[in-house]
Computed example of a mutant assay.
Amino acid sequence: MKSSIFQKAVLLIAGLTAIFIGGSILASPDTFYAAYGISLAGDVSLTNELRASGGSVVMLGVLVLAGLAFTRFALASTLLAAAMFMTYGATRLLSIGLDGQPDAGLSTAMIAELVIGLAGLAALIAARKTA
């Protein structure tokens, strides 16, 4: 199945975003989280945990980008992108309901995640209609 330009754009944006965010967390969790007013305060265990999740996000980004390089992976990569970004956005929204309003940067991240996730869902629906 041939990927649409829209699907390719979603994969590119989602993949690069995941690699950038995950790579930033992996390389310097203190700096990344300080931008959101979060201090890791030398907590080695927390830093270790955050680097591990950053590495996972990098790998998810690589798998999403694989859908651009290998068309047979495009549908799976689009599903992965939609699931990953919708989950991040939805759980941040849930957290706002349970815990209150976070730093403005995290609210902005939530909106971006939901937009990318919804774009992924739209690309999936469009791909299904053309199949």
Rank of each mutant, 00 (worst) to 15 (best):
F73M: 12
A66G: 11
A90D: 09
L79P: 03
I19K: 07
G22V: 06
A9D: 05
A123L: 07
S95Q: 12
K8G: 00
I96M: 13
A90E: 04
A90F: 06
G117H: 02
A76G: 07
F6V: 01
L98V: 06
L50V: 08
L80C: 05
L106W: 01
T31H: 13
A76T: 10
F20S: 03
L11G: 02
G15R: 02
Q101M: 13
L65V: 00
P102M: 00
A14S: 14
M59F: 15
Q101C: 00
L11Y: 05
L118S: 10
L121Y: 10
I116P: 03
I19A: 04
F70M: 06
G97M: 04
A127Q: 14
V62T: 01
T130W: 12
L50T: 04
T31C: 04
L118R: 04
F73E: 00
Q7E: 05
L106N: 09
I25A: 07
G105V: 00
L121T: 08
Y33D: 03
G55F: 05
A14H: 07
A52H: 08
M84C: 05
M110C: 07
L12R: 06
L26E: 10
A104T: 12
G97R: 14
Q7T: 00
P29W: 13
S95I: 01
T91K: 14
Y33N: 09
A34L: 10
A76M: 10
S53M: 15
M84Q: 11
S28L: 07
S3V: 02
L50W: 13
G120I: 03
R128W: 13
L68H: 06
E49D: 13
L46S: 09
A69R: 10
I38S: 02
I38A: 08
S53T: 04
V44W: 14
L79N: 08
L26Q: 10
A126T: 06
V115N: 01
A127K: 02
S3I: 04
T108A: 11
A69Y: 13
S45V: 09
A35L: 04
L121S: 04
A69W: 15
L65A: 02
A83Y: 15
L106V: 08
L40A: 02
A109N: 09
L63F: 15
I38Q: 09
A52D: 00
A122C: 15
A131S: 13
K129M: 06
G61A: 04
S53W: 13
L26H: 13
G37L: 05
A81P: 11
V57D: 01
A69G: 08
L50M: 11
I21Y: 10
D30C: 06
A127S: 14
I38Y: 04
G23S: 04
T17C: 03
A104F: 11
L93T: 13
A74Q: 07
T17H: 12
V10G: 01
E113T: 07
R51S: 03
G105A: 08
R92F: 10
D99H: 08
A18L: 08
L68Q: 06
L93R: 05
F85V: 02
D99E: 14
